[in-house]
Design a protein around this nucleic acid. Structure first.
Lengths: 247, 247
DNA sequence: TAGCAAAGTGTAATTGTGACACCAAGGATA
DNA sequence: TATCCTTGGTGTCACAATTACACTTTGCTA
């Protein structure tokens, strides 16, 4: 910490959340559709909000998540700060801000987070911005408002690197699942195919899933065994300093 | 982005830099000694500064680095934002801020960076805070001002994880070095011993160092060959998508 | 010239990875 | 009720990577 200098600013601080979900369609992200202009994709934005006085950054992100999805205490990790002085200055973005902010020209630095939600628990909320929330397959997103596409790319990168060392994927699945769901999830996140037998071998060796000795019913093919995540074994691995899940 | 709400703040934004250096004593970090009170360690702080209007976050961190070390264009990576509302409120810290800031009670959110500098190129500068900069072995740091110890721990964690996938260590070494320097560097960063033969095999296989066919002189033991980092081979590896340096 | 200190080198056992193909089970349908 | 369709579930082999481990070389110093 040094002495004061001239020209320092007091920007606004926001938090923007990249909320990932997963289903048979693959990896999705929850976006807010902004109303005006055409329905071009670049009008979508990440959900976010300005942070409050005396509010911790993580708490602000949890609050956004809660307002939007109704979920609390879910996986959430900071991506980093995005604060380019011109990050809000695309013409469409400026116009939109003018309609919505008291001081639309103020600089805003955002602290970005990503989180993993189980879409089965997700229930859209009635809060002001949750109305226009939509799940969009990550692979179909090519542009977003502000610098949000850049933030999404950073989130994906961090998630990919995280899932190689920690079994965070379970946050995206229901409590009971089938190994092929987990398999598809890993393929969706990593964006490449994984050999079925090798995948299963790895998962089994880790001992982080546990069969419930129940089978699927009503499926037009051989029913799969149903599994749950074994949190105790996972905790043991982490305590032993294990951090390589090797994908 | 949602609608405005009450209670939003306009905090100050600072950047704090964890500047790592390396020599025979191991991994070091550059700290600022705050003047008052006793010479207890918790008076040391990370170098940092408030950011300017219209200044990009990365640029602010580069500026701090330049003012402090005289170096520009060196390895620098964001760690993340630290913004707990009470991060400045330890009594000693408050007293110090009162002596130095116009509005010492203002909330300050910091964007932390870490960087790797070659101590041979480092020359202390005459800037206001560079006067009291000191290199301290990372292993001896146990407390710091504000939340800076937490930031240091995050920096170390990120560096350890980074060095497993990218050969960033070369930023800490002189342009010409000896394999045992590189070996000691990796051991210092990872905090555990690495087998000499296995280490050399890995480095050689990667092809990212290149012998200059010169030997050390004046050492009281068998002289070592002198190496340099092979940037072309490294670039090739990165372009091929290689990101596992396997330590 | 003896001794010291660090440099430099190879192998064997184990473990991990990647590629690959067939049978099983249940529902759907003819 | 037999056939077909779809997905579940399984083992092996070749190769690569990792770990553990000890002795000789070189140059300076005493």
């Amino acid at each position: 910490m040094s002495l004061n200098k001239n020209h320092q600013i007091n920007p606004k601080i926001s938090t923007d959340c990249v909320i990932f979900g997963f289903d048979n369609e693959g990896l999705q992200v929850l976006l807010i559709e902004r109303k005006p202009v055409s329905d071009r994709e670049e009008n979508n934005a990440l959900p976010g909000d300005l942070i409050y006085d005396d509010e911790d950054l993580d708490d602000a992100a949890q609050r956004v998540l809660k307002e939007l999805t109704g979920l609390s205490d879910i996986f959430l990790e900071q991506i980093g700060a995005f604060g380019s002085p011109d990050r809000l200055s695309k013409p469409e973005d400026k116009k939109w801000l003018e309609s919505v902010r008291q001081y639309p020209d103020e600089r805003v630095i955002t602290i970005a987070y990503y989180s993993l939600v189980n879409k089965n628990l997700y229930k859209p909320q009635a809060s002001s911005f949750a109305q226009s929330a939509v799940w969009v397959p990550v692979s179909e997103v090519t542009t977003l408002a502000f610098d949000h596409f850049e933030i999404l790319k950073a989130a994906l990168k961090q998630l990919r690197s995280k899932i190689k060392t920690q079994p965070v994927g379970f946050n995206l699945l229901p409590a009971q699942f089938v190994l092929s769901d987990l398999h598809k999830l890993y393929e969706s996140i990593l964006g490449r195919p994984l050999d079925k037998r090798n995948f299963r071998r790895k998962i089994n060796k880790l001992g982080i899933v546990e069969s419930l000795n129940k089978k699927q019913t009503g499926v037009p093919h051989k029913p799969s065994l149903i599994y749950k995540f074994n949190e105790e074994n996972y905790q043991r691995l982490v305590e032993e300093g294990y951090d390589n899940f090797g994908f």
